[in-house]
């Protein structure tokens, strides 16, 4: 008799949430890290003087912050599994390997979205509202953030499973994660840019970039899903 994959999926996801709610390790460090990054940005803006239209560079800066903060979370999420060797016990149970991928990716996506939900209003408040406000509708920002987070969590889950078993851990994760994220970030920054600046043809242009985000998510997350079995079994 095969145990239900859904029950296993829920169990892994719930376990990650319960552990996080008990320690708040990941969410606090990720949120604080993002907020601290904003302080550093402010230094750069001040140095650049009043001539710089901050809204033009904000989209890119938002994603710089989120890429780095997501790597913090991805690393943590597998250190739990690895340090006590529990992943071994999960592998010994009759679970289909892709279920592990889906559950861990869903957890990582959840945590990343929570951090984004907390910090993006601060971003907008600090860097956008005082300089002309949001040009596009707010839903665009939400769609862009979520769409790109799917790809980050999906590919990141695979890469973090690799990096947790290497000698360099976080360094190795960064090395693999960032060049693979390049196309996704490009599209996400463009879409975010439209959300912040608005413009005449904002909506169709926005969806054109979101199509890239969606395409990347589909191809790369599917590939990560397919490759996961090899990685987790090694």
């Amino acid at each position: 008799m095969r145990p239900s994959s859904w029950r296993q999926f829920v169990a892994i996801l719930r376990k990650d949430i319960v552990m996080e709610l008990r320690t708040f390790e990941m969410l606090t460090s990720m949120t604080l890290y993002t907020l601290l990054t904003m302080v550093i940005y402010q230094i750069a803006f001040t140095a650049a003087g009043g001539g710089l239209d901050v809204r033009l560079v904000t989209p890119g800066l938002i994603w710089v912050a989120f890429v780095f903060t997501s790597m913090l979370g991805l690393n943590r999420s597998f250190v739990h599994e690895k340090d006590q060797g529990v992943i071994e016990a999960i592998l010994l149970s009759p679970i289909d390997r892709p279920v592990i991928f889906l559950a861990k990716a869903a957890g990582n996506l959840l945590f990343l979205t929570i951090v984004e939900a907390v910090t993006i209003p601060v971003f907008v408040f600090l860097f956008v509202l005082s300089r002309g406000g949001l040009g596009g509708p707010a839903w665009m920002l939400v769609v862009a953030l979520f769409g790109a987070s799917v790809g980050m969590a999906g590919v990141g889950t695979l890469l973090a499973t690799i990096s947790v078993n290497t000698k360099g851990r976080d360094f190795i994760l960064a090395l693999m994660f960032m060049p693979l994220m390049y196309p996704l970030l490009t599209a996400a920054v463009q879409a975010t840019s439209i959300a912040i600046l608005g413009g005449v043809d904002a909506v169709p242009a926005f969806w054109r970039w979101m199509a890239w985000v969606g395409g990347y998510d589909a191809i790369m997350v599917l590939a990560a899903y397919g490759l996961y079995e090899f990685v987790i079994g090694a």
Partner: peptide, 9 residues
């Protein structure tokens, strides 16, 4: 134990 009970159904 609850976690592993779910893993094993």
């Amino acid at each position: 134990l609850r976690f592993f009970a779910d893993m094993y159904g």
